[in-house]
Amino acid sequence: MKGNILLSRVAESVYWMSRYVERVENTVRLMNVNWHLMLDLPQVLSNEWESLLHVSGDYELFKDAYSEVTPRNVMQFMTFDTANPNSMLSCLTSARENARSIRDVVTPEMWEQLNSLYLMVKSYDSGSNHFFENPHEFYQEIQTGILHYYGQMNANIYRGQSWGFFHLGIYLERADKITRILDVRYFLLLPSLEEVGTAVDDLQWAALLRSASSMEPFVKKYGPVEARAIIEYLLLDGQNPRSLRHCIQRADSSLRELGSVPAGMYNNDAERRSGQLLSELSYLTVDEIVRMGLHECLDDLQLKMNQLHVAIRERYFNPDAQSGVWV
């Protein structure tokens, strides 16, 4: 009997490949938004660039290798530096290595697209291309390349077992990044949340939205930029495809498809934790978040997402812990 089977190792590689590609997508978006912001607000730049290093959790590593936080250094570190495991080049390398180990699951078109993207970034000569004067075009090219890859994936991947792991990787990575971006930019939201009344620059608000999502639907739905609305839009809005709630929703339904379990029920710890997190996000309000404290709330959500990740690993990637033998 052949049927719909997926090796645990392959499932894990699909999951990590997806996470790495999505990580690049988030990083390139952050870098591009920040660079545009710098053109408008050259005076606030140092803080902004440093905060990017906190989003990926690489500030310490950066400090060891670079003497000061300059836009050029941060861009180099986050784009090409292979000593930084979270740089775009490192993530593309890891994504490609994972893809190579599952060439029988990834379609030839997806592989070619990922490989081209990797070759493009790897062979890019930032010196002769005046990259640091105008990184926009290059970043745009990476973004387009990733969208192309996602297009191939959505159009062609067989909706079997592996499909669920493609989704889990993408959405858990995106969820992780949203909470980190919000947490790092917390100081931006802080004054108005505590009603100190300090006017925060509109440009920075807009930059925050753009780096985690898109600006336009926000304005259409909520009107002028305001702290509570941003929190709601990025964490709780079910219609925003990059909101935390939407990500957890997608991850949860992937887990249910994998386990053939209806909503509201669970057979394993991964399904239980994702269901719990999803219902929390579905019924949480901004008032409650503010009362709890945004930072504390984000900390709590991150912890739960980590637990979910561990539960998925135990259930699907760690076959020694499984019983159920049939031949």
Partner: peptide, 14 residues
């Protein structure tokens, strides 16, 4: 396992 060569899949041994 159980006298057969099996592969470790997300649904157990096959």
């Amino acid at each position: 396992a159980n006298g057969y060569v099996c592969m470790k899949t997300t649904q157990g041994l096959r």
